[in-house]
């Protein structure tokens, strides 16, 4: 019998390519092994990918933290409030320290700002003489409503969601 060759003239195992037509025993077995192998790989890969990506799917638990009484804030006197709350970090419960700026428009209307400058995240402060929020890093300036007046910040100060419960002012912690 003439030896079977592939297109480079290398000897080929008979039946390896199934060239004789139909499904050879060799082909059947390689499909079988390939199929079972793929099934095992998929059965492993599916849970493993979900497991590794697990933290990316979880959304932090919503928390409302009391930061003060409405009467603590006098109108148009921005006040920096420091507070802390318990937060889940993986398997640990950690004490998370946080800050926000509270601006009372009147005794019922408030603005609560994220304490980071919207430019590159520095801490800004309220200047009582100029009645503006000033950022020391690159000269960002905001008015009392958080609107940018000067400097590089690309948008108004970010607002922190809050709600009133009776006399208490609560802000949302992430």
């Amino acid at each position: 019998m003439a030896e079977l060759m592939d297109e480079y003239g290398r000897p080929q195992t008979p039946g390896a390519s199934g060239k004789q037509g139909g499904v050879t025993r060799r082909k059947f077995l390689s499909y079988g092994i390939g199929g079972i192998g793929t099934a095992i790989a998929a059965a492993l890969l599916y849970p493993i990918v979900g497991y590794a990506a697990s933290p990316a799917f979880s959304t932090g638990k919503e928390q409302w933290i009391a930061v003060g009484n409405v009467t603590d804030f006098s109108p148009n006197q921005p006040q920096k409030v420091e507070f802390s709350y318990k937060k889940l970090d993986g398997w640990m419960t950690v004490e998370q320290k946080s800050t926000c700026w509270v601006v009372a428009k009147d005794s019922a209307n408030f603005d609560v700002f994220n304490p980071k400058c919207t430019h590159l995240g520095c801490a800004y402060h309220w200047d009582q003489n100029e009645t503006k929020f000033l950022c020391p890093c690159h000269g960002g300036v905001y008015d009392i409503t958080g609107k940018v007046l000067a400097g590089p910040p690309p948008r108004s100060l970010d607002k922190v969601p809050f709600k009133l419960e009776g006399d208490k002012l609560l802000v949302k912690g992430a």
């Binding site: 849970p47 493993i48 979900g50 497991y51 590794a52 990506a53 697990s54 933290p55 799917f57 993986g90 398997w91 640990m92």
Partner: peptide, 30 residues
């Protein structure tokens, strides 16, 4: 993949294993 969440320290070993088992997706299976 267990090492992705496990911490070999007395402070964290037990809790990190519980975390794998109860919180991480498919953790119980892995």
């Amino acid at each position: 993949f267990l090492m992705l969440y496990y911490v070999p320290s007395p402070d964290h070993a037990y809790e990190s294993v519980q975390y794998i088992t109860n919180t991480v997706h498919f953790g119980k299976i892995i």
